[in-house]
Design a protein around this nucleic acid. Sequence first.
DNA 1: TGGATCTTTGGGATCGATCCCATTATGCAC
DNA 2: GTGCATAATGGGATCGATCCCAAAGATCCA
Lengths: 348, 348
Amino acid sequence: MRIGLKEVAAEAGVSRSTASRALSGSPLISAETRAAVEQAAARLNYQPNRLAGALRSKQSHLVGLVLNNLINASFHTIAEVVQRRAADEGYQVMLGITDADPAREKEFLRTLAAHGVDGLIVIGTGKNGATTNALLAEGTGVVNVIRRPADSAAPSVLAADREGAHAATSHLLDLGHERIGFIGGELTADSGRERFAGYEQALRERGLAVDESLVERGPFAPGFGTEAITRLLRRAPRMTALFAANHEAVFGILPTLASTGVSVPGDLSLVCHEDISWLRYWSPAITVVDNGAAELGELAMNLLLQQMKHGDGGRDGAQEARNGRAYRVGAQLVIRDSTAPPATRRDG
Amino acid sequence: MRIGLKEVAAEAGVSRSTASRALSGSPLISAETRAAVEQAAARLNYQPNRLAGALRSKQSHLVGLVLNNLINASFHTIAEVVQRRAADEGYQVMLGITDADPAREKEFLRTLAAHGVDGLIVIGTGKNGATTNALLAEGTGVVNVIRRPADSAAPSVLAADREGAHAATSHLLDLGHERIGFIGGELTADSGRERFAGYEQALRERGLAVDESLVERGPFAPGFGTEAITRLLRRAPRMTALFAANHEAVFGILPTLASTGVSVPGDLSLVCHEDISWLRYWSPAITVVDNGAAELGELAMNLLLQQMKHGDGGRDGAQEARNGRAYRVGAQLVIRDSTAPPATRRDG
DNA sequence: TGGATCTTTGGGATCGATCCCATTATGCAC
DNA sequence: GTGCATAATGGGATCGATCCCAAAGATCCA
């Protein structure tokens, strides 16, 4: 038979209420009683049933994490950080993978709510603001990450895509490059648009205009990277630098450059957006814009913990914590060996 | 106020018992009553409290997934597969990341059990056989993946490391290579030992002995790959092929080969163990041994579902499903463009 | 020593579902 | 019409913890 609180209470010679108080750290109990109960619990190897506790106390110590996939490096990095931080604070993480399908995402949000999660971290499609707002109103904590539904009443933790792209482009401009290629995502994607905006802005600040013949946009896939860089090399032989703003495309761009004998940074300086661990081991080590995935996860979890702690306490605090404010985690340019001044050409 | 079963019952004009039966698909209820209750539930947007249901019925519809990290491609692939399959079967996944620390792993196993998970998938350290056996005895489903504790009473789903390594090496031998390098993990790691054994066996079958000057073993880290391949190239200039059996090291090996001008497969044929999605986009596309991460996850989840379904039913079935049998998921050699016959040398 | 206050404890209700048992309706055969 | 099996329903107990209220015991001061 499984050991319950009742058995512990009997073993310690006290009532269930007292045993409960002893183990939950209530102050209204004597030190000896607490010790006795703790010893009894240890003797019987008591393992509290969290389900029962959650049902009565309305605190499940469960956090839901909803995201598109676990393949993308930023996503699984965030998942790891969130999980660690949650575990350290006594929360467990329930996982939902949506494939970026809003319907599936909605389904997960409701199911996780049915399981009584105290809070939700949504790295989502941005299409379920209404659902998360409803959960928020019922007292569930919510934090949006990376993408922010237009109508969300929950706080959002966003990457500084525009600033990062601006920094990357400015770095290349500082080195003396003027013909800088751009391979990014479609303008329909938030990150695609923001990063292009940062690129454009940096150029404009130096009095340069975007040359569309240096720009490639396409899906988040390695295959696109291969095609894009091939086209760019043919179309724009005088390009001296490239800003790769499409995470997945990088997987196609790098090998193609290596195999076609383009020397980096000799022939082409290269900056990639989003840090992927092994880019540092590339030869040459790749200069990147680190979007701070770990920090995004960290901050999101902090905001969620804040909400959940205020949850049963004062309404003002909860109100405070539950505003729809957006937070930005700054991007960081990590300069490695793939960027250098352009080769001075006699024929230029 | 939150809508409970009581409210639905009132709305439909029936008792709570009847409402419960209608919504849980019990056969002892009339079609009209069922329809009426379902409509009432829909009208009120009823969302059942899974906590309460789980407490009473001892079925939480929760599955625990314990793994070392989410960075490793095999791990996050398995995590994705398990999550999808679980969701399709009406289960939610609770995540535990252990950093390969047995103590942390044990902690997670107990915590997840306290949350009442119906089953556990453990991609673990192999050090907590006793704990999982205890949970198994209490009626929780357990499946080990990739690593199998020596004393585990639960079924295990293992990768065919030895066979995969054998296939990779044989492929190179078939092409005519004789001086085949090996970069792998330490022999203290199960996968390191098994893969080396497969390599050795393939050589022996052709009457060749292992030449230790062609072998490098080290930690699972990109940096090690860089060092290892650099040493090998210097030490064994006549090596014509390489089997890279250390997943993480591949991240160091590939760029180093590219930057030092070693032509693949012209100068060196290359096979990597474990499929990493972007290896297909490398130039040349890399021949790999696919360890079948997705299939590992799939099979593990099937075995777990089997246990959980038998869970409350016949003891015989449960007994059957809960043997400590080991299952192997075959490795698959995926031949791409990085392997070719050795160049015939005038000076050989 | 009595009474007021504070500390500590026990008993019962409760969270929201499911399960078991008793009860009522229904159908069918004789 | 009676008897009996079957189908459908309702009421209360239950899962295992926490919460609330009342009561018992300890403390202290007048």
